[in-house]
Design a protein around this nucleic acid. Structure first.
Lengths: 142, 142
DNA sequence: GTTGCTGCAAAGTGTTTGCACCCTG
DNA sequence: CAGGGTGCAAACACTTTGCAGCAAC
């Protein structure tokens, strides 16, 4: 168990009068060990392999906790389910999604970010967040 | 009824051995007259004002038809429902969504597009589509 | 008249919530 | 031992589907 992330979660939990439980540790643990961009259902399947008593609702509730404590970000690639990725010590980036094999390439282009700011300010718009998803075929599926 | 769009729809329908019906005309009509970025439910409410007999399922089925015939594009701003916008004679653009009042500003920045291509080719990735959504506050809500 | 279309209701999918019991602090 | 957490099942919101009758070609 990575202690830094557990610390972040515990800090958030203590600041909000919440409690650390076996289930929350298990879900955090699985989330951290897991490949990126997991869905709730996928995480549920992983968690229940080690602890079959954990309910799907708890996974949803814990994912919401992780999102609020800034350990996870919610992603939506438009396929009908939310996905989650690590956020702690993991800076902003965008996604290229291969529609054939599902591979996801992360990237960041400073100039794209810069021009977004430019377009926004030109329209008097204040950015709080943004997401750029590129869909297509990766080198292997082309 | 705008005849150009009806023609596009009829072409698609004839090419696929489908049929033109009163309901399909009505949904297309409402979609064209309507402000952009409608959801199925919103469109259903509009359509049933003129023709109360049309079912929600027909609206969904027709929206799928419009999407396949390239008259509409599906949008997903992550709020749990799909939205649709005109596509025919309406070139590609991205969206800035005000999280306060829901206003949507469309924009296009050629350099952002260009750098996306650059990032993609650098990764051996072939783009088929992309979407950039910027969330924040518009000038009035700031 | 054949084949696709419609309205309705039922089923599906992903997510959230109510509740009685359980456990952490 | 008080108050939040859990598992379960039911409820939800949005969308899709099965079916019997209907309508376009």
């Amino acid at each position: 168990m990575s202690s830094k992330e557990l610390q972040v979660l515990e800090d958030y939990i203590q600041q909000n009068n919440l409690k650390i439980t076996r289930q929350r540790r298990a879900v955090l643990n699985a989330f951290l060990e897991c490949e990126k961009h997991v869905s709730a259902e996928e995480l549920y399947r992983i968690v229940t392999q080690k602890d079959p008593k954990i309910g799907l609702a708890t996974v949803y509730r814990t994912l919401s906790l992780l999102t609020h404590s800034q350990l996870a970000s919610e992603l939506d690639f438009g396929d009908g389910q939310k996905r989650y990725e690590h956020r702690y010590m993991h800076s902003h980036h965008d996604h290229m999604i291969c529609t054939e094999c599902g591979k996801i390439i992360e990237f960041n282009h400073p100039l794209i970010e810069k021009f977004q700011e430019e377009v926004a300010s030109r329209n008097g718009f204040t950015i709080t967040s943004h997401k750029l998803d590129i869909f297509g075929l990766c080198s292997e599926c082309r």
